[in-house]
């Protein structure tokens, strides 16, 4: 199945770009007329994925984050967030709620939030090569008379 509409965005892994990234994706998705809750879910999930790239993928340098969003039939959207950073050694462990390699003020909830705020998440990672997070969500949107 091919996306009916898509956009690509490349940003530097600077924390100031976190808000830009989530707002860009949510602004693109707005054409599906999502509810406020659906938009909030997408913003939060994208924010988590982009923060992971900044904090974990490129811990000591500034790299590129590649964001792609596609719109499919029946309100389905796919979001890919990719980096060419250090990669994840153990994906299953990384996705466990409350697990964090950094400790401190990181809650270890990034993947748990992405999982619960979207319909589907897939994570591909290769140590030394990078990580791709694929998120899917179907927008049911607002009723026509709303």
């Amino acid at each position: 199945m091919k996306a009916t509409n898509e956009f690509r965005l490349t940003i530097d892994s600077r924390s100031v770009n976190e808000s830009f990234a989530r707002v860009a994706v949510s602004a693109f998705v707005a054409q599906l007329d999502p509810t406020i809750d659906e938009l909030g879910d997408i913003k939060t999930a994208v924010s988590e994925a982009v923060t992971n790239c900044i904090v974990h993928a490129y811990p000591d340098s500034v790299g590129k984050i590649y964001i792609w969003t596609g719109i499919y039939e029946n309100g389905k959207i796919k979001i890919k967030i990719k980096d060419r950073g250090c990669g994840i050694i153990d994906i299953r462990q990384a996705m466990e709620p409350l697990f964090s390699t950094l400790g401190g003020e990181r809650a270890g909830l990034g993947f748990a939030v992405m999982e619960s705020f979207t319909d589907k998440i897939r994570v591909y990672s290769k140590v030394g090569k990078g990580t791709t997070v694929c998120l899917e969500k179907t927008i049911t949107g607002r009723p026509a008379d709303d």
Partner: peptide, 13 residues
């Protein structure tokens, strides 16, 4: 107006 899991870290800390 917006909070992700960084806000959880802030509260727990």
């Amino acid at each position: 107006t917006f909070m992700d899991s960084s806000g959880i870290g802030l509260i727990m800390g």
